[in-house]
């Protein structure tokens, strides 16, 4: 079956979406990610959508769902690289994805995940490390 590859980097999962996904492919990605968060006890999920030319309400909902599910499984999700035209269209569509953290690129996204986990540690929440 067709799948979007997911990379593991230390305690983070990395996904780069490079194809125009049909709906089932998006749902499979959602399933795979939640599965892997639990299996690897991942603390961060980074989704790079810089190659996506459009994000419609279905993909937008998938991104929101992944962020919400990851949160329940104690992981931080960051969506990176959304193109300006895509962002303008999503806002016009009425989809502002309030629960999703965003960053300009993969580098900034990784730093955002690290900072979020650091804040959690200092606040005494979340799993202890090691």
């Amino acid at each position: 079956m067709e799948r979007i590859p997911i990379l593991r980097l230390r305690d983070c999962l990395l996904v780069t979406i490079q194809v125009d996904m049909h709906d089932q492919l998006a749902l499979t990605l959602q399933d795979d990610l939640t599965e892997l968060i639990v299996r690897h006890q991942a603390r961060g999920v980074l989704i790079d959508i810089s190659a996506l030319e459009i994000v419609d309400s279905f993909i937008g909902r998938m991104l929101s769902n992944i962020a919400a599910m990851a949160r329940i499984l104690d992981a931080v999700t960051v969506v990176v690289g959304m193109r300006p035209a895509v962002a303008i269209t999503l806002v016009e569509l009425g989809l502002e994805m309030p629960g999703v953290r965003t960053a300009l690129n993969v580098d900034a996204g990784m730093r955002l995940i690290e900072r979020a986990l650091e804040e959690e540690r200092q606040a005494g929440h979340g799993r202890s490390k090691g």
Binding site: D23, E53, I54, V55, D56, S57, F58, P84, A85, V86, I88, T89, E92, L93
Partner: peptide, 17 residues
């Protein structure tokens, strides 16, 4: 324009679905 292309494609995607 690129923004208008994106808006149109997004609308088409919603309605086709």
């Amino acid at each position: 324009s690129l923004v208008n292309q994106t808006k149109l494609v997004t609308a088409a995607s919603e309605l086709a679905r």
